[in-house]
Design a protein around this nucleic acid. Structure first.
Length: 233
DNA sequence: GCATTAACCACAG
DNA sequence: CTGTGGTTAATGC
């Protein structure tokens, strides 16, 4: 093995797996990123960042899939978002207290770039367009969390699960049939319900012909009905 | 009260 | 990890 993988040699300038906001940096700025980042491979299940630790880096997801989640009371987790390539993971710690307020772990083998936070901040400081795009990304994520807060507090279990399936369909997999990288516990942690309720409601959806579960594959067979359940709560 | 919902628990595959 | 059934506590007629 004399050859290092392609991504090790590539500088950030030509990289096609960087998060979109980095497109707004010029050559000099991208070289700065290149000098202050490391590219790391994580195996499925590994923890990429741990809630409560010092926030030394921000993350750009190159390949794979990760979950961003809060470790709550009594081993209960709440998944904030699923992040696919090529997206960015920052967080309130950047400007607040330099601490990770959530954990990040790999749902499948995943490659990420870890960019030194001080360098990232200096880029936000010197490049207005870049900083604006960062704000847009941050705001979008915030809005999505607001939406989910409403869904979870004002809908019952079927509506919550319908929302979760629609979220995966529209934001992550973009296909009515996909290999699910999440466990039932993960689905419960996104939907704000117990694992038991999650299993039961998915069975119920299957009985009603809304979805088809086959091992780790999930197919949505009646999208209209799913949307109706989401609407009615 | 009574019915429904969903979490909790124990346990089997 | 996934699925099932019984129990229980909260909520809404």
């Amino acid at each position: 093995m004399n050859e290092s993988p392609d991504y090790m040699n590539r500088n950030c300038l030509n990289c096609n797996c960087r998060a979109e906001m980095f497109n707004l940096l010029n050559q000099e700025e991208l070289e700065l990123v290149y000098r202050h980042k490391t590219t790391v491979m994580f195996r499925k299940g590994e923890t990429i960042k741990k809630q409560g630790t010092a926030m030394t880096h921000v993350i750009s997801v190159n390949s794979g899939l990760v979950k961003v989640y809060i470790e709550g009371i009594d081993r209960r987790n709440t998944i904030l978002r699923i992040v696919k390539p090529t997206n960015f993971i920052g967080g309130p710690g950047i400007y607040l207290d330099q601490v990770h307020h959530f954990s990040v772990s790999a749902l499948q083998d995943t490659r990420v770039c870890l960019i030194e936070m001080q360098v990232f901040k200096s880029l936000l400081d010197r490049n207005k367009k870049f900083s604006e795009e960062f704000m847009v990304d941050f705001s979008r994520n915030t809005l999505a969390i607001y939406q989910r807060l409403i869904n979870q507090t004002q809908k019952e279990v079927p509506g919550r699960m319908a929302d979760t399936i629609l979220y995966l369909l529209e934001n992550i997999y973009n296909s009515s049939k996909f290999e699910l990288h999440l466990t039932k516990q993960d689905l419960a942690d996104i939907s704000g319900m117990s694992k038991d309720s999650c299993v039961k409601i998915l069975r119920e959806f299957q009985r009603e012909g809304i979805i088809l579960q086959d091992r780790h594959e999930l197919e949505i067979t009646d999208l209209e009905k799913l949307k109706r359940i989401s609407r009615l709560g």
